[in-house]
Amino acid sequence: MYWIILLVSAVLEAVWATALSLSDGLSDPLPTAVFFVAVTLSMLGLGYAMRGIPIGTAYAVWTGTGAALTVGYAMVFGGEQASVLKVLFLAGIIGCVIGLKVVDGKRSEKA
């Protein structure tokens, strides 16, 4: 359950980062409201997930997944130029996140 909450929180990180970018310095009401709701829920989820996932792993997964989703969204919707290398590096981030889950799962089995 902790991992599911962590991944939802990472998605919300991408939402709030994108909303912040669209808020025009927090002056546009709709993206500003989305930003505040998403950042609050994202932080609450991260905090909850840290009850069952070590802080270093949880934070790395949260930031890595959120960053990869934010860049991916920006590339798809035109805010950022896509390239083969960017996609390759984003896949590397996601691969590392999966690796952290696998390593954490093996640690939990031994405990």
Results as ranks from 00 to 15, higher is better:
I98E: 09
G25T: 04
I53K: 07
V97H: 05
T63S: 13
V76W: 12
V76P: 04
I94W: 02
A49D: 05
W16E: 03
M1I: 14
F89G: 13
G105L: 11
L7R: 08
Y48S: 12
I5V: 09
T70W: 00
Y2E: 13
F36A: 07
L85P: 03
G72V: 05
M75H: 02
V102P: 06
A82S: 13
V61S: 11
P31Y: 05
V97Y: 01
F36M: 07
V84E: 12
V11K: 00
A17V: 09
I53F: 05
V97D: 11
P29H: 11
M75F: 01
A49S: 15
G64F: 02
L12D: 00
V76T: 14
A17H: 01
G66T: 05
T18D: 03
L7I: 15
I4P: 05
V97N: 04
A49V: 12
G105I: 09
T57C: 09
V37K: 00
T57I: 13
A33I: 06
Q81V: 15
S23K: 03
G78K: 08
V8L: 12
K86I: 10
L100F: 12
L85D: 13
L90V: 11
F36E: 02
G56T: 12
V34P: 00
V39C: 04
A74P: 08
I53T: 11
A14E: 03
V39L: 03
M1S: 15
I5T: 07
K110Q: 15
A111G: 15
P31D: 04
A67D: 04
T70L: 09
